[in-house]
Write a protein that binds this DNA or RNA. Structure first.
Lengths: 378, 378
DNA sequence: CTGAAAGCGCTTACAG
DNA sequence: CTGAAAGCGCTTACAG
């Protein structure tokens, strides 16, 4: 049996001067000695007067090292700016320092924000973010991911909706012993393996807001049925309406694809009806912008003739005119949370605000802007 | 001296059945044997009755292998679905299979499109795309990238504007023997190391279009002076105006930051002038959308009161109302070109449409939509 | 054209 | 608490 070692979650960034620097100290390329890269565990071992294995123990924070030894080795490591070679570690550990982001969300804004959040955590570490877009309808969808995992042996992967909701995939990852964190709108895994958003609540807020403005003919364009978030948002919306004594009409509930074009097309159908809705809640901002477009094309003014609410609060929401009322999801924060969960699966390493054994979750917030107004009397 | 070997540009995707598949053949996870991953070069050597080294030669397309031997080994490789372990190769070669995308462009749409283009080429290969956002104003900007390169030893990196224009960085990469491809609006490297866009021409087209509509008080919000593209677009715009007998007024030329907010702020200044411009050419779409916003805030209608032209043709251009006239840059195609240049630096491997010794370049195209109109007589 | 040996920079068992 | 040996899966010299 091997000895017990603390999981290596500590980061070995190259020991560079940190913290604020005088203005004029901006380093020029080449200022750092080229020799630095060559320092290996052997050098450190020799210089510290210990074996490679002991250096390895220090690197990996093994408790099995005398405090004195540890200090000595750490000092040498710092002095020489040694960083273990990720490729060598990967080969020996059969696990690389890559963190995969597996996504199939069609909204570019969602993707970019998520990447930013993950990168916030990975930057200045040895971990690298690698991108893995995918398509659940591909015949070799599982195979491609399986190949990626077996070949690259990523440290872990982060899954965003809707691919995060695929139980077959989660099972496959588990079987392959690949760590993962799923981001989803429903509780579908243990707290150490997921970050949750309460889409249901957010949509309910949207409903209550719309209802409070006096609307009654209210439409909903939801996301694809293959997305749990689409269901959560729809049910939350229905729930919110019910509280206000309203009901979501079947004829005014259309399925979109979370894309601009689908939002546009669904809205065209809605506006062509004999008695069109006076308010539309779209399942995400992309589709909501499509609704704006369709409204303009038929001469309807937002919000005078039509009230529109989106979901996500991606940048586009505040760039359209009038600025869109939407439900904010802190996507970047979610990415950050997912990444730190992946790197620090143990409670003690977790940020303080996350309680033991509870799923890290984010509450959406209704952002009221200019696309919603009291229904105009006709 | 080592023997000569063809550079390994061929890809070793796991040998799965390719091509169209019957509808019902969608593989379930786990359908692929778990044993597959364990096949190593030793197994292949043993099964082929040759040495590891010969298998290695076959993998690396060395010409120093008898045709018969090569066929035999290739057959075994195919049969067992062997793919060389990227981590092991990385360790031996001191070069990983990671392709870094180094970017500081503030436009999310630009980033996502670029990523897509690069991924188009990398998918189904052993190469992985890793993200490296950066900030040229960081005091340790070079250091961070240097650390990334020495630690991860990427196969190569792709640089987008403006970081692509940093000569110190390019020199550093060269010294570090790190392959790179730069995407830029000016010719700043040899043909094998860059992909070029003719922003100058695109901006000139925009100018001629605006001039042809009778505008004379024309403003330009250009990108940051630290971006070569900003200069190219500005000079191209000036050039186009000159051809039409017009001149760009200094007082109507403002510097933005390629962001929505900066476009908005610059436009506010323009519209507050005693005699505001009747047309604005923004250096990119993000800023142009800011101009839309500012126009609306002061009650100006697009295009009746103000003509607006953007640059890039990112999705947002067709999502605003009215749809924006803009200069299209095929960003995804550029990403694709950059990636294949990096993986196939030799002419013979290059796509046919790229001639020998010439820089791969893309011509922008003016997309006329609804944000430009003939000047209204007052 | 082919192979046996040594090495890339780490870690895992095993022993003390 | 510490270390010598073997190994992760490849490739580079070198030799034939």
């Amino acid at each position: 049996m091997g000895e017990k070692q603390a999981r290596n979650t500590q980061e070995w960034s190259v020991s560079l001067a940190k913290g604020p620097q005088p203005e004029n100290s901006k380093r020029k390329p080449g200022a750092v000695g080229l020799g630095r890269a060559k320092v290996t565990i052997n050098d450190i071992a020799r210089l510290s007067g210990v074996s490679k294995k002991t250096v390895s123990r220090v690197i990996n924070n093994s408790p099995q090292v005398r405090e004195e030894t540890r200090k000595k080795v750490k000092a040498i490591i710092l002095e020489h700016g040694f960083t273990p070679d990720p490729q060598a570690r990967a080969l020996a550990l059969r696990r690389s320092y890559l963190v995969g982001m597996i996504y199939d969300n069609p909204s570019p804004q969602y993707i970019v924000n998520m990447q930013r959040g993950i990168l916030d955590v990975l930057s200045d570490t040895s971990y690298q973010l690698v991108l893995r877009p995918c398509d659940r309808t591909d015949y070799d969808f599982y195979e491609k991911i399986e190949t990626f995992i077996t070949l690259q042996k990523p440290y872990g992967v982060i899954l965003t909706p809707s691919v995060s909701e695929d139980e077959d995939l989660a099972n496959m990852l588990r079987e392959m012993k690949c760590d993962y964190v799923r981001i989803a709108s429903v509780e579908l895994d243990k707290p150490t393996k997921m970050v949750r958003t309460h889409d249901f609540k957010g949509a309910a807020q949207a409903a209550q807001h719309i209802a409070s403005l006096g609307h009654e003919r209210i439409a909903h364009i939801h996301g694809p049925n293959t997305f749990r978030s689409a269901h959560q948002r729809r049910h939350g919306f229905e729930h919110g309406l019910e509280i206000c004594g309203l009901k979501l009409a079947k004829s005014l509930t259309l399925e979109g694809a979370y894309t601009f074009d689908s939002g546009y097309e669904c809205a065209q159908k809605l506006f062509a009806m004999k008695s069109p809705p006076t308010a539309v809640f779209a399942g995400n901002d992309e589709m909501a912008v499509g609704v704006y477009q369709a409204a303009r094309q038929v001469g309807m003014q937002v919000p005078k003739d039509i009230t529109i609410v989106g979901f996500d609060d991606t940048p586009v929401a505040s760039r359209v005119w009038p600025p869109m009322t939407t439900v904010r999801l802190p996507i970047r924060d979610m990415g950050r949370a997912a990444a730190s969960l992946l790197l620090n699966p143990h409670d003690e390493d977790r940020p303080e605000n996350f309680k033991d054994g509870e799923i890290i979750s984010f509450e959406p917030e209704l952002i009221v802007r200019g696309s919603t107004a009291r229904i105009s009397k006709k």
